[in-house]
């Protein structure tokens, strides 16, 4: 089943059109990596999928509710010295289930605990978020995204700034989640890891885009060129 179908999509960043006529889809249980140079519109595309930015032309069709998408955005400067413990950060992921209620119920607290355990960070829950290592922080934000949704995760450059070991562990964790049935859409700079883990690749180039299975992508000029540089 298609979770997301994008047809002939064009979007702009500030006043510049960054991609046009883009078509791809995300299937249930898929692992799609979006690769491409800086400024090719990867983050803008994600904002479009999440409904944070309006498309210029084309269609984005979701067969799941926006509330069923978990999102791990790029880190912000605010978070580097924000006083919050791990449990508080993860708990902010269940807010979309509250409706008009102001506070969390027992079942939402259980969701928080379940996802802390799922990512094996439950022993960190009273620790300060800002004092954690980069890899641990990303796991906490992944747990928060899982609280918000459990059918599709959208990750925006989640391993940027992590050391190789932490990045490898993060990729393993995401693969595990994917094998348990969650579809993954990951924006990445790291093309080698993308072709290693993903089953579909969307490559945003300067004036054209490529979307196909990872196998076909390996033989395409897009992959050859980006490794050659």
């Amino acid at each position: 089943m298609n979770l997301i179908t994008v047809t002939n999509l064009s979007m702009r960043y500030e006043s510049r059109t960054i991609f046009s006529d883009l078509s791809f889809r995300v299937l249930e249980g898929d692992y799609l990596c979006v690769v491409g140079d800086n400024g090719s519109g990867k983050t803008t595309l994600i904002k479009g999928l999440l409904g944070l930015k309006q498309p210029l032309a084309g269609k984005i069709e979701l067969t799941i509710d926006r509330n069923e998408i978990g999102y791990l955005p790029q880190k912000t400067a605010v978070q580097s010295d924000f006083p919050a413990n791990v449990r508080e950060v993860v708990a902010s992921g269940v807010l979309n289930r509250l409706g008009l209620r102001p506070f969390l119920r027992a079942e939402e607290r259980t969701t928080v605990q379940k996802n802390l355990q799922r990512l094996r960070i439950n022993e960190l829950q009273t620790q300060s978020f800002r004092a954690l290592s980069g890899g641990q922080q990303q796991k906490v934000l992944l747990a928060r995204a899982l609280c918000a949704a459990d059918r599709l995760l959208i990750l925006d450059e989640p391993v940027t700034g992590l050391d190789p070991q932490a990045a490898a562990e993060f990729y393993r964790l995401v693969k595990e989640l994917n094998q348990s049935g969650i579809a993954i859409l990951m924006v990445s700079h790291d093309i080698r890891s993308a072709v290693r883990y993903a089953n579909h690749i969307l490559h945003l180039g300067q004036d054209s885009a490529y979307f196909d299975t990872t196998e076909h992508y390996r033989n395409s000029k897009y992959y050859q060129q980006s490794l050659g540089v």
Binding site: P73, V78, L95, L104, R144
Partner: peptide, 21 residues
């Protein structure tokens, strides 16, 4: 009444908006 939501928008505005806040 908005304690949890104020936390969410202060900590991470983009995530909060993406989840429909």
């Amino acid at each position: 009444l908005s304690y949890h939501r104020i936390f969410a928008i202060t900590f991470d505005d983009t995530f909060a908006r993406a989840t429909g806040l």
